[in-house]
Amino acid sequence: MYNYTDGGLTNIVLANGYEEHDTEFGPGVSFHDLDGLIKAICLALASKRSPLSAEEFRYLRQALCLSQTSVGRLMGVTDQAVAKWEKKQVPLPKLAEFAMRAIYMEHAGGNQKVKDLVEALNVTERVLTIVMRETEKGWQHEEEESVT
């Protein structure tokens, strides 16, 4: 059994799917299908029956490649509020916990609209111009992007 502590997690134990070995820097471990392991851990966290810990919330956020700033914008709070949740300085709001679980589950389940929203949240420093064109199918839009 291996205690998986990536991202500060303390409650994940691997029964298999890893190899321990010696390196020139000391003991090491390698994981079979690391991407699959991370997704499985996130799905387990998002669906667990007990509340998310601060570390678990952060792990889900990072798995989605969302910054604290992006999550703060989504939740209507500052990035410092998100940091305080993750450092256990203030309690994690139930709505934030629910939203993170739902976003991860929908994203992992292939919901393209949620994936697009997550991608949009990941791009925080851009200016968009939306160009509208009338076509035979009705009005359509295109985005022109520039980085600031």
Results as ranks from 00 to 15, higher is better:
1 M>I: 09
3 N>F: 10
4 Y>V: 09
4 Y>K: 07
5 T>M: 11
9 L>K: 01
9 L>N: 03
11 N>T: 12
12 I>K: 01
14 L>G: 10
14 L>F: 07
16 N>S: 15
17 G>V: 07
18 Y>C: 04
21 H>S: 11
25 F>K: 15
25 F>H: 15
30 S>M: 10
33 D>I: 02
35 D>Y: 08
37 L>W: 06
41 I>E: 00
41 I>S: 04
42 C>R: 05
45 L>V: 09
47 S>Y: 10
48 K>H: 10
48 K>S: 09
49 R>V: 07
52 L>H: 04
53 S>N: 02
53 S>E: 03
54 A>H: 06
54 A>I: 07
56 E>W: 01
57 F>L: 12
59 Y>V: 05
59 Y>D: 01
64 L>E: 04
64 L>I: 07
65 C>M: 13
65 C>P: 00
70 S>K: 03
71 V>G: 05
71 V>E: 06
74 L>I: 01
75 M>S: 06
75 M>L: 14
76 G>I: 03
83 A>P: 00
85 W>L: 07
85 W>T: 03
87 K>P: 02
89 Q>H: 13
90 V>N: 08
93 P>M: 07
93 P>L: 05
95 L>V: 14
95 L>I: 13
99 A>M: 15
101 R>H: 03
101 R>L: 05
104 Y>L: 05
106 E>I: 00
107 H>P: 01
108 A>C: 06
111 N>E: 11
115 K>Y: 00
116 D>P: 01
117 L>P: 00
118 V>H: 03
119 E>H: 11
121 L>Q: 03
121 L>S: 04
122 N>Y: 01
122 N>P: 00
123 V>E: 12
127 V>N: 11
129 T>S: 09
129 T>R: 12
132 M>Y: 15
132 M>I: 14
134 E>M: 14
138 G>Q: 07
139 W>S: 09
142 E>P: 00
144 E>T: 09
144 E>C: 06
145 E>P: 00
145 E>G: 02
146 S>Q: 15
148 T>Q: 10
